[in-house]
Design a protein around this nucleic acid. Sequence first.
DNA 1: ATAAATCCTGACCGATCGGTCAGCTTTGTA
DNA 2: TACAAAGCTGACCGATCGGTCAGGATTTAT
Lengths: 214, 214
Amino acid sequence: MDNHDLPEATARERNEQRIFEAAESVFARHGYRGASIQAIAAAAGIPKSNVLYYVGSKRRLYITLLERTMWRWNAMLSDISVDDDPAEVLEAFIRSKMRLSQTHPRSSRLFANEILQGAPFLKESLFGEMREWVEARAEVFRHWAERGLMDPVDPVWLIFLIWSATQHYADFETQIVGITHREKLDERDFQSAGDFLCQVIIKGCGVRRRDGAV
Amino acid sequence: MDNHDLPEATARERNEQRIFEAAESVFARHGYRGASIQAIAAAAGIPKSNVLYYVGSKRRLYITLLERTMWRWNAMLSDISVDDDPAEVLEAFIRSKMRLSQTHPRSSRLFANEILQGAPFLKESLFGEMREWVEARAEVFRHWAERGLMDPVDPVWLIFLIWSATQHYADFETQIVGITHREKLDERDFQSAGDFLCQVIIKGCGVRRRDGAV
DNA sequence: ATAAATCCTGACCGATCGGTCAGCTTTGTA
DNA sequence: TACAAAGCTGACCGATCGGTCAGGATTTAT
């Protein structure tokens, strides 16, 4: 029986949850090859055999986590239109990516590791989804530029700029913390960094804000 | 005898060169744990034992490469002064980081992997060097803001923005190539991306350019 | 020519890798 | 209560890991 809509957590659900969290942590830190099932099992507080009993194989576990990350990612900024306000959309874009960095940093680092490896597990179909995502948004940015609502910057480079600048606070958190004497990045840090990025990027693209400010 | 100033390459120099290049490639792709000496040896076309004969241990090899990267990095933008032109300095900063991404992408990815791991090999002294580098430049940016030469943006966030946006073209090259249908990033891509970043960031910080343009 | 230093490598070491499996315990159902 | 299904795990497999070492091959110095 699958009580898939009952709130009670079965043994399987409970353990898979613990395994996923532990695995995300270890994969994010050491990459696919560098992560060991033993280390994941230890982090989850579960015997190695039990981990394999639930997830089948290292490969399957990794791909599951990767797809989960992609899914979360693609859900972002799903309803953008040419008629929206450019400043509002760019701000929403930056803020939501920044929130992902804050709430799911290990997810972000797992993805970064996959790319550094040369994206061997990212099927063409998944890259295809991202391509469509990018092209759709880029098209909107282009329209805005044509209407004079922002400078005619390359919209694809703009998307990469926002990705990189926001992901940096998840992927390179260790470096930021080490350089700025912090113990960790807190709510205020993400807020102020988000403010900074919104200000610089929106102004840098020559977006005219509704309130008349430049 | 050490012919350390003779141009002839000794067997040691030749082999170390090949090993370093191969190792940088493998470490950049798979991280410290994920890289195997066997794989490095194969990439260098040298028996595993011979690799260990030259470099001593995996740890030592990795640290050597990491220090080499840090050295290259710290040499950047070494002579910045409050009296320099903000736009010129920012442009030089972005261009030189962009050139590093173009000419030493594996170096950049090696470093990215080290940070993702939590920087276990980056001694406090090395982080200290980076901290001094950042604080010195941040101080200059602050002065410029006080003199009204640019907006009063957080100078540390600005440095991280430039780091992340430029490194992205090395660390996430696979993703960029996959999404934009390219085979690889070429000279023109780096040029146009560099142009874009200079334009957006300098304008975004409210830097007044000498020629009067905004 | 010959001794010394360096270069080079196959064989091997214990540890750990991902994964399998027999067989145990616990849970759910009739 | 009884039986099936699911949960669980120690022992084990061949492969690979980082590293050592004896000893042969080659180069260098005298």
